[in-house]
Nucleic acid binder design. Structure first.
Lengths: 181, 181
DNA sequence: CGCGCAGTTGATCTTCGTCAAAATGTGTGG
DNA sequence: CCACACATTTTGACGAAGATCAACTGCGCG
C-alpha cells in the first residue's frame, strides 16, 4: 500500500544503509514532519528506513486519500511545498559539508544544528536521543573517529561530556570549525 | 528584490563555493526548473551561485507575484511541490554517496545520471556542457583525481574519451562501481 | 568471579588531496 | 609558417585525514 506517515508525536531518524555496516542519517523528523513521502515521486522507489528514537505516534496516510485531500486543501499543499523546500535547502547544505568540510567541522555543525533544533532545555545541554553511533552516522563518519574528535572538542573546552550527555560550552569555538577558508 | 528565476531555455549549474578554490555543484537545472527558490524559506538566506552553461533565457519572478499566483493556481503549486520533492530525493541520494561511496563510484554515478538526464543524442555520447572542472565539482572531488579515475574507467572500457567528449561504452561496468556491499 | 558489551585508545593502511613538474595545446605577433 | 608565451591537461611524488583493525578498559549482570 502506498502512502506516507505523518509524525504525530515523537522523533524518527530517517536513514539509509550503505553496504553492510555503513549508514547515513538523512534527517531527523519530529512531530509535524512527514516520513515516507518519496512514494510521491512516482518513479523508482528509493527505499529508506525510519527508526523511532523514542515512543512515537505516527499516522499513515494513504496516497489516494492524500492526493485527494491536497486537491481541496490549499493550505496543506502550500505547507507541504514549503516543507520540501526547507528540507531541500538543508539537504544541500549538508551535501556541501560532506563534500568539502573536514570531519571536525561536520561534527561541530551537527552539534549546533541538533542543539538548535532539538535542544529542549534552556541550558546548553543537548539531551539527544541520538547515540554516539547515530551521531557518527549523521555526520557521515565512524564511531571511532567521532570519539577522537569529540575528545578534541572537549579539550578545546568547546563541549563537555559526562556519560551520555553532551553540553555545549562555547558555540563560538564550534562555529570556528565550520568556517571555510 | 526578492524572487526567483524560472529557466525558460538553457542550462544552469547551481553551485556553492567553499573556501577559495573549492565548490560543489548542487544541481544542474534546465528549462522548466527553478533557480533561486531559497528565498522562499524566509529564514536565513543561503547564498548559492548560478552559472549558465549555454545561452540561457531566464525569467525573474517577483516573490509577491509568485505567492499571489500560487494562491489561485492550484496546478502550479502542486507541480512545485512535486518538483521540490523530487529534488530532495535526488539530493539525499547524493548526500549518501558523498558520505560513503568512493570517488570512482560517485563519478560512475554522475556519468550515468548526466547521460540519463541530459544526454540528448541517441548514442551513448554525453555531450555535456560540463567541463572537467565542473564534473569534478559535481562529484565533490578535484580536477586531478577526476582525470585519474576517468583514465581508469577508460582502461576498463567503461567509457571512451576523445577530446572533450565522453562516450559511455558500458553502463554495466559503471553500475558495478556504484554498488554497495 | 567470569562473561559480554559499549566505550576507548593505539597502530597501521588506504584513499585521495596537494603540490609541482612535464607535456600538450592554443593563440599571437612577426 | 614559425617561434614564443601562456593556458590547459596530464603525470608523478608526497603527505594528511580518516577508515580499519585490533587490543584494552571499564562496568553491569548473571
Amino acid at each position: 500500500m502506498k502512502g506516507m506517515y505523518f509524525i504525530d508525536k515523537g522523533l524518527v531518524k530517517v536513514h539509509k544503509k550503505w553496504g553492510l555496516d555503513k549508514e547515513l542519517i538523512l534527517r531527523i523528523a519530529r512531530n509535524g514532519d512527514i516520513v515516507g513521502h518519496r512514494g510521491l515521486g512516482g518513479d523508482l522507489i528509493y527505499p529508506v528506513s525510519g527508526t523511532a528514537l523514542e515512543p512515537t505516534d505516527v499516522c499513515f496516510v494513504d496516497l489516494e486519500f492524500f492526493n485527494s485531500t491536497l486537491k481541496v486543501n490549499q493550505e496543506l499543499l502550500f505547507a507541504l511545498m514549503m516543507f520540501f523546500a526547507a528540507e531541500l535547502k538543508e539537504s544541500e547544505k549538508r551535501m556541501r559539508n560532506l563534500a568539502h568540510m573536514p570531519v571536525k567541522g561536520r561534527i561541530a555543525n551537527a552539534l549546533l544544528f541538533l542543539k538548535n533544533k532539538f535542544g529542549v532545555t534552556s541550558d546548553a545541554a543537548i539531551n539527544l536521543l541520538l547515540s554516539r553511533q547515530d551521531l557518527a552516522s549523521y555526520t557521515g563518519t565512524t564511531y571511532e573517529t567521532l570519539f577522537r574528535i569529540m575528545n578534541e572538542l572537549a579539550e578545546e573546552n568547546a563541549i563537555s561530556m559526562t556519560g551520555k550527555s553532551i553540553v555545549i560550552l562555547s558555540e563560538d569555538i564550534l562555529l570556528g570549525h565550520t568556517k571555510d577558508n
